[in-house]
Design a protein around this nucleic acid. Structure first.
Length: 514
RNA sequence: GCUCCGAUGGUGUAGUCCGGUCAAUCAUUCAGGCCUUUCGAGCCUGGGACUCGGGUUCGAAUCCCGGUCGGAGCACCA
């Protein structure tokens, strides 16, 4: 059976048992069904905070929420969780939308939490009137200590009238002087329930709202209200929010809002890469990396710049599922997924790293007609040989006079002398094609090409490796000069690269993977 | 420290709810081979795992108890 070609094997197998292939397709990995999902009535949300550029973790989260909304013919809402004016920046709202668009994800509605400031205030006043909240003046440290100890502060016993007066005073109080707290359960084992702050004073302009407001809701409060009023049916989020379900459900209960179903999955990381804004931001600020799109980063932009396809992120999401373990993905998995995606549709070009000029006698006038892809029909190109052409140093350094090398799709050459330059002559002697080294070649003048080669930013101890972005120089065939920025191609026998910049007479690419 | 969550080969994952059909799935990685005018793709073969200790049971990856390890939370961040 193995003696047959793959196609023949396939046919043979199909003839024997057609169901073999049906079963194979069925096994394809997919997401589990969503609990209590009603077709046409699922509403999910993508809730980024505009305080940085999204990374692959956000990408997965976006995709989960997008996927389930589509699967059940429901809606997905892009909602900026922008209730901390000190952290949000205009730039990030746009960047997040651009990255979502790059990922090929769409949304049915876009909104900002900060658009609902009046609603939060109304809810706060409702809680106050119901006796479910109180204005606390104890100060942050005291509150923190009391919450830790599980005991109440005197403010908790205030009457509704006293609270109303304090609320009035809070409108003009200085930052930090007062805070609105929920009357929860000060002794709860779930520490988020211990009378958390729900509204606080922040004197800082907001990128969307300006300085129209100074009483800002805390995340749990805003989130509970938003998820309830937007009619979110399913919340898919990572597990650092686990303890907040009880709190947010309780808040909605007091406010008469419906609860969504919450599914948690764990945060995941990629080995050798910082996978959180908290870790990435300082690297950008101190210049360790060149920016949010540094190809060593697993930001959406970093991945894009490296030639990773959006579909690879979908596939990765499928591979992970809504896992509750704490995965540490190996980069090779991302590469393997991406390679499968791009290999069949990616054109091949010649590029020689660390080029060595080779003078070849008798090569004038020869021209190669090269396929853009070995098996797929992606067109052809012509490449004319020149008396001196370039080969990769790694391909010639171990050669000695008399050796024969095959210039791919052109001709064979016999090496005559090896030194600073190599000289050779066209050889027409019959050779064993299986034995001979087949190498890519670039005619003179080649296109000077710089390859940025990213490697792990972290070593095994999670320390930053300074020299993790290598630069390799070489010469590419002239056609590479006209590839639009963003094109992913394969440099034969070298690897997949993405065109990063086109300058006059020079090209820069980023190495994706082998 | 307290609370919660998790633990299947090098990596990711299926199976765990409803114990036997699991001498454990699939992918990736690794090793060997085939094919190939790419070191890519494809194909074949192989190696490799149920965190540990008790218990329940005829039978445990699956149930119970305990330990270990890992993660998260304990903000007037989200």
């Amino acid at each position: 059976m193995n003696a047959l070609g793959p196609e023949a094997q396939h046919e043979e197998l199909y003839a024997l048992d057609p169901s073999f292939f049906a079963a194979e397709e069925k096994k394809r990995k997919d997401f589990p069904p969503l609990p209590s999902a009603v077709d046409g009535a699922v509403v999910t949300r993508m809730p980024p905070e505009p305080n940085g550029y999204p990374h692959i973790g956000h990408g997965l989260s976006f995709y989960f929420n997008y996927y389930y909304a589509k699967r059940y013919h429901g809606r997905v809402i892009l909602r900026f969780d922008d209730t901390n004016p000190k952290a949000e920046r205009r730039e990030y709202y746009d960047a997040i939308k651009a990255d979502l668009t790059w990922m090929g994800l769409t949304w049915d509605e876009e909104r900002n939490m900060s658009d609902d400031m009046d609603r939060y205030r109304a809810c706060a006043e409702q809680l106050l009137a119901q006796g479910d909240a109180y204005v606390c003046t104890c100060g942050q440290e005291t509150v923190s200590a009391l919450r830790y100890a599980g005991t109440a502060c005197p403010c908790r016993a205030l009457s509704t009238e006293e609270n109303a007066a304090r609320w009035e005073a809070m409108q003009d109080a200085p930052e930090g002087a007062m805070v609105l707290r929920l009357k929860g359960d000060v002794a709860s084992l779930n520490t988020t329930m211990r009378d958390p702050a729900i509204m606080r004073i922040i004197d800082h302009p907001h990128p969307v709202q300006g300085d129209r407001y100074r009483l800002w809701p805390v995340y749990d409060f805003a989130c509970a209200i938003e998820d309830g009023t937007l009619g979110i049916t399913h919340v898919l989020r990572s597990n650092e929010f686990a303890l907040r379900i009880e709190l947010q459900d309780y808040l909605r209960d007091r406010l008469g809002l419906p609860n969504p179903v919450t599914l948690q999955y764990s945060r995941f990381s990629i080995r050798g890469s910082p996978t959180s804004k908290r870790l990435i931001k300082p690297l950008i600020e101190d210049g360790t990396v060149t920016g949010w799109d540094d190809p060593r980063l697993v930001t959406i932009r970093g991945l894009a710049r490296r030639g990773i396809r959006p579909e690879a992120i979908y596939e990765l999401a499928r591979e992970m599922g809504l896992s509750t373990a704490e995965p540490e993905i190996d980069w090779s998995l991302v590469e393997a997924i991406n390679r499968k995606l791009i290999d069949p549709v990616t054109r091949r070009y010649f590029f020689v790293p660390d080029p060595v000029p080779v003078k070849v006698q008798g090569i004038e006038g020869r021209e190669a007609n090269l396929r853009m892809h070995p098996t797929e029909d992606l067109g052809t190109r012509r490449l004319a040989a020149t008396p001196v052409l370039f080969l990769a140093r790694s391909d010639v350094r171990d050669l000695s006079p008399g050796d024969v090398v095959r210039l791919k799709d052109l001709c064979n050459i016999r090496i005559e002398a090896v030194g600073d330059t190599v000289s050779a002559a066209v050889s027409t002697d019959p050779i064993d094609m299986h034995e001979v080294r087949k190498v890519q070649w670039v005619p003179d003048p080649g296109l000077p090409t710089t390859v940025l080669v990213p490697s792990s930013l972290y070593n095994a101890d999670k320390e930053v490796v300074a020299e993790s972005l290598a630069v390799e120089n070489g010469l590419a065939e002239p056609a590479v000069a006209s590839l639009p920025v963003g094109t992913v191609v394969q440099f034969e026998r070298y690897g997949f690269v993405r065109v990063d910049a086109q300058g006059p007479g020079t090209t820069s690419v980023v190495f994706a993977h082998r």
